[in-house]
Structures are given as structure tokens and as C-alpha cells.
Amino acid sequence: MKKRLLVSFVLLLSFSFSSVVLAEGKPQKPKIPGSVMEISKENTYPNPTQDLPYLQPSELTQQLIDTAEVPIENPDLIRILNESTISDAPLAFGYRATIYLGEWALNYESSETATNWEYQKINTNYQDNRGGKSQIQMSYRQEAQKSVKGGLTAKVPEAEHVKKMMLLKAMKKTNLPLAFETIIGAGTKKDQVYNVPPKKLGYLYAYAPAVNEKGKVTYGEVYLVLKGNKRSIVVKNITSQGIGAWIPLQDHASFGFVTSDRPR
């Protein structure tokens, strides 16, 4: 009896541990407030899908990356290494070469990811019902095309490479459709109804949400070293720098509705 209980307890503990590991391994999508709505189908401006695949290193590239003392995650550097070939030479004894590949942003380490659901105001609709005797309805309609841009919070070397790595990390952490620019087309509308009482003005504000990504980027001079049939990557003059970025949430809008006795 005790043996059965012990086996059952072990199985239950194993199941619970597996469930925790699986839950922690999945991206934690932030809880989206009820005031935030997706407008991808209604948007009159077709934003291109932000598709940044996680580039897989080739077998040779992975072997080279494993020899480096610093993690290498820059997809552009990985692409260059993937396109390189190094032949094994049976008579390469004594052969030596050091090839300078340049100074690179090697990796980005995320420390904080937060969402501002009212990052930038993109539109205001209003209805004047001060002379009315019953409530009237209003809905969102984009008055003019609006471009919402994000970007890095400071100037850093290899800015485009840094932005790409930060975008990849933020997308993985939030599981949200992010892009450094999103456009809301004029005439975009949503059927959600807001009621304006008699003797009131109704204001419907629309905002573009964005993710605030913060962390650290590491730079270094990259050398490909060949010694006989051995090949490795050596990184010199390693430096790190803190960096932040605002990355808009694509094809989403956050709405705020207020009524007033007077014009705002």
C-alpha cells in the first residue's frame, strides 16, 4: 500500500514539474486591456507583415559560434558565416590565418519589456449632443492617415542591427505583432458603439500602443582564426552599452471615451 502511494506521489510530482516547465517555456503574452482592439481587417492601409525569422546557424557556423567567448546572436553576422565555406585540407599542417570580419553588435540581452497602451494619440472623434433630448451613438473613424514610428532611445553603433535584435527579443517575449513603424489609414473604422447622453459632448480618443524594450547590447571585433584544420572565432575589444527602444504594436488601437459639458 505504501509502495503504491509512493509511486502515485512520484508520478504526480513529475506531472506537476513538467507542467511548470512547459508553462515557463512559452512566451508570456501581456494581458490586453478591453479598451484595446485589433484593426488589421479594418485598416485601410495594408501594413506589411513584420517577418523576422530566427535564422538558424549552419553546422559550420554553429561550430564557429561555440568557440567564441561571447554569445553571437546577430542574424546578419550569422548569415555571413552561413554563406562561408572552409575546406578541410589534409596537408594544412602549419597553415595559419587570421581574418578580420569587422566590429559587430554581437548580442542583445533584454532586462525589461513593458507595454504602454496609450503610446501616441492617433485620432479624435466627437459628437455634440448638448441640444439633444435622447442619447446618440458614435463610433471610431480615423480622420487622417497616421504614421506611428518607434526607435532607439539613444544613438548607438550598428543601430539597424541592434534594432533587429531588440525586435526579435521583444516579439519572442510578448508574442505580439511588433514593428518599428505602423500606419493607420484614413477612413479606418470600428463598429464598437459609444453612447453620448443628452446635454453632453462625447469624445472618443484613439491611441497607438507600443512596447518599451530595455536591455544591454554587446559589441566586439570579430576574427576568424584558422590553424591547420582547426577554425575558431576570436572576439576582441568587447564592450557593452545599455539601450532602450519603443516598438509600436502593429494594427492595434486603444480607445478612451469621455463625455463633457463643455468643449475640451
Rank of each mutant, 00 (worst) to 15 (best):
K2P: 04
K3Q: 13
L5F: 08
S8G: 08
F9H: 08
F9T: 15
L12D: 00
L13I: 10
F17T: 11
S19P: 00
V20R: 12
V20F: 13
V20I: 15
V20M: 12
V21D: 06
L22I: 11
P27D: 07
P30H: 07
I32S: 03
I32L: 07
P33K: 08
P33G: 08
G34H: 06
G34L: 05
K41D: 13
K41M: 09
T44I: 04
Y45D: 00
P46R: 07
N47V: 08
N47F: 10
Y54F: 11
Q56A: 13
E59C: 01
D66Y: 01
V70W: 04
I72S: 02
N74Q: 12
L77N: 01
I80R: 15
N82L: 04
S84T: 15
T85M: 10
A89T: 12
A89S: 13
P90C: 04
P90M: 05
A92L: 03
T98L: 06
I99W: 05
G102R: 08
E103H: 11
E103S: 14
A105V: 11
N107D: 10
Y108R: 01
S110G: 13
S111D: 14
E112W: 03
A114E: 15
T115V: 15
T115L: 15
Q120Y: 09
T124S: 08
Y126K: 12
Q127Y: 13
G132F: 00
S134R: 10
S134Q: 12
Q137K: 10
M138E: 02
Q142T: 09
E143V: 09
E143L: 09
Q145K: 11
Q145W: 01
K146Q: 15
K146C: 07
A154K: 13
K155F: 08
K155T: 14
V156M: 06
V162I: 10
V162D: 00
V162H: 02
K163S: 14
K163I: 09
K163R: 15
K164Y: 05
M165I: 12
M166F: 10
K169G: 02
M171D: 03
M171H: 02
K172C: 00
E181I: 07
T182I: 04
I183Q: 05
G185D: 07
T188G: 08
Q192L: 12
V193N: 02
N195H: 07
N195Y: 10
K199T: 10
Y205C: 02
E213V: 05
G215V: 08
K216F: 06
E221Y: 06
V222Q: 09
L226T: 08
N229A: 05
K230D: 14
R231S: 14
I233M: 10
K236C: 03
N237I: 09
S240Q: 14
Q241P: 03
I243D: 00
I243V: 15
G244E: 07
Q250Y: 01
A253C: 05
F255L: 15
G256V: 11
G256C: 06
G256Q: 12
T259Q: 05
S260M: 05
